[in-house]
Design a protein around this nucleic acid. Structure first.
Lengths: 356, 356
DNA sequence: CTGTTAGCGCTTTCAC
DNA sequence: GTGAAAGCGCTAACAG
């Protein structure tokens, strides 16, 4: 008999059980057409020798083998996913995929020491049987098309213009910006400055569009100088706010950067000699329900990104199981909260970290 | 010509380049024996069609393919790895393995919905080319032997009695307990109670042994009643401390539970009508350099677990690259800190969470 | 109910 | 320098 510590193959099992390899394969895959006694005998041997099928061989022959790949399409300095979001995501993945006995595979490569990052390597190498794309897509992203065409179940926590078929679970940033701007217009503001992040990425574009659409509807002329891209550094935000308030007749600040950094906005205002909530109004975006970025803000827009992602993952599981077909289309609407409830400002569980 | 969005094989590449598959394979693996012009032509085609080798096929034929597996040998209620440790570990893995373009594969399965947990599934299925075992090994653990025998590079953040060949990167808990106990004996204590966690696991055993050795050397008779197992729940710790202090003549408490929960110790003492640092002395273990679990403690023992793990990962990388051979033996000595420096007590970055 | 055969994409002899 | 052929462990198609 073969040594126990060797790797057994279905042929070894077959020889041992005096059946053919195909029968062993049938047992392995829970397929019908095997006598119960034969099945029991084979299962017994498998247990005894601690047999495990070779994943590579399976992937080679059949399809739909492998791990669930988790990948990030943007470098971490563009979308500095926070620890708390990361932990949240891991928890969700665990909750959903642990009972199914899946492997989660993180690609460590994309943005390190690579000239041309390919964030879906694992898919081309047929290591993944499904793929979760975490974060904003670059405007010129082509990879997502290839992922889509590969036919593998996948979901993106973001969208791409001109690719509505894409499988996504995200929040409607355009809608968010449109509603935010409209809200400020309704309060009488005509010079509304916008802080937006993710320049060069789809979410940045969506925000811009929503903002412009609201202005146009109200018959206001947009001023490019009022649209400012910020990065995830608090000094940067303070600087941008400072310049914005110092040199113009801005009466409202729409902070849809998603940085959730109220202190920096306040600091920028202070340098410009203005006080938020008094000299100008602020509407800030937050990723936490009922979270307030700035107590002085006249309203907060809640972007239920986590909630959308959670539903997307759920649906991905069903797609993998072929209980439903792809692609996934989960698009949550942002929610405007005019007042902060309670005395204490709930500290938002950030989606992104501020880099300093 | 083959469609671009199909999966190309080396044969397709070979046909295109008018060479044999073997030549393509040689180029793919950076092997010598190919004319420079041929090599360039092949690389060019590969780039053009976005060729990626099939991981399964490679794993099937050659050896040493696949991801780096991360696995946890103990259920999370035994070793509730904290978020901060988890983030730390992920950061380390990223730092080390990202530049190498590795995949990190987390087995989500072991302790969910499985009758007999097999925390190294991925290894038997030949999905992993290396394996990191995070956490304490159960005393009856057999899996670790199989991992060792498989010849795959691996490292355990823990050890196992009677298996010194095991590849590990950890801290000497026995030494830590021995030195801790000796320290308390030197201060005149004769009735030293010990709080220890991980009962049924190797680290628990090591602690017990170190404690008993120190008592024996000092000619003190051990009292089984003074050795108490605690779990990672704060109520549990308070209860155990309460009972320990209420019913005996204990003058010193050696808290090598690793729970880093000073508040619960204080609470237990309060219930017994005693004050730590006054009615009895405490020596507490911590996983943070210069971290203090309890301000009233007469000393802290720092267990440099993270530091050992970090070095272990580094060496694992070299083992994978065959720049060194296995197994890895990294054993850090704990460090006794008599005084807490600075006025503020640094909050330890916990290794384990307290479950409540 | 069970077995035979071929082939997935790659690497490894060994030959030229 | 290069290629032909075999085979890694598994499964799908087709026989019986």
């Amino acid at each position: 008999m073969k040594q126990n510590n060797m790797n057994w193959t279905i042929y070894d099992i077959a020889r041992e059980a005096r059946v053919s390899a195909k029968t062993v394969s049938r047992v392995l895959n829970d397929k019908p057409g095997v006598k119960e006694t034969t099945r029991a005998k084979i299962l017994d041997i498998m247990r005894k020798v601690q047999y495990h099928p070779h994943m590579g061989a399976r992937a080679l022959r059949g399809k739909r083998q492998g791990c669930i790949g988790i990948t990030v399409p943007a470098p971490l300095n563009v979308a500095p996913l926070s620890q708390s979001f990361f932990i949240w995501l891991f928890g969700e993945l665990f909750r959903l995929f642990s009972p199914r006995g899946e492997y989660l595979c993180f690609d460590m490569n994309p943005f390190a020491a690579q000239p041309k990052p390919d964030y879906a390597r694992g898919l081309w190498q047929q290591l993944y049987k499904a793929c979760i794309v975490v974060g904003p897509l670059a405007l010129e992203d082509k990879t997502i098309f290839r992922i889509h065409e590969s036919g593998v179940p996948y979901v993106v926590f973001g969208r791409l213009d001109g690719f509505p078929e894409c499988s996504y679970a995200t929040v409607d940033y355009e809608e968010g910006c449109y509603e935010s701007t409209k809200f400020l217009i309704k309060r009488g503001h005509k010079r509304i400055a916008m802080l937006k992040a993710f320049s060069g990425y789809e979410p940045g574009l969506e925000r811009r569009r929503g903002y412009l659409r609201a202005l146009e509807e109200a018959g206001l002329t947009p001023d490019e100088n009022l649209i400012r891209s910020v990065t995830f550094g608090s000094r940067n935000i303070a600087n941008v706010v400072h310049r914005l308030l110092a040199q113009s007749d801005v009466t409202a600040l729409l902070d849809c950067s998603g940085v959730e950094d109220g202190a920096s906005i306040r600091e920028g205002a202070r340098r410009a000699g203005k006080v938020p909530g008094k000299d100008f109004e602020v509407l800030s975006w937050t990723y936490a329900d009922n979270g307030a970025v700035l107590a002085e803000a006249c309203a907060h827009m809640w972007l239920p990104v986590r909630e959308a992602a959670s539903e997307g993952l759920e649906l991905l599981g069903e797609w993998i199981d072929e209980k439903r077909a792809g692609p996934i289309h989960v698009l949550y609407r942002p929610v405007l909260n005019e007042k902060v409830t309670g005395g204490e400002i709930p500290k938002p569980k950030r989606l992104f970290d501020v880099l300093d």
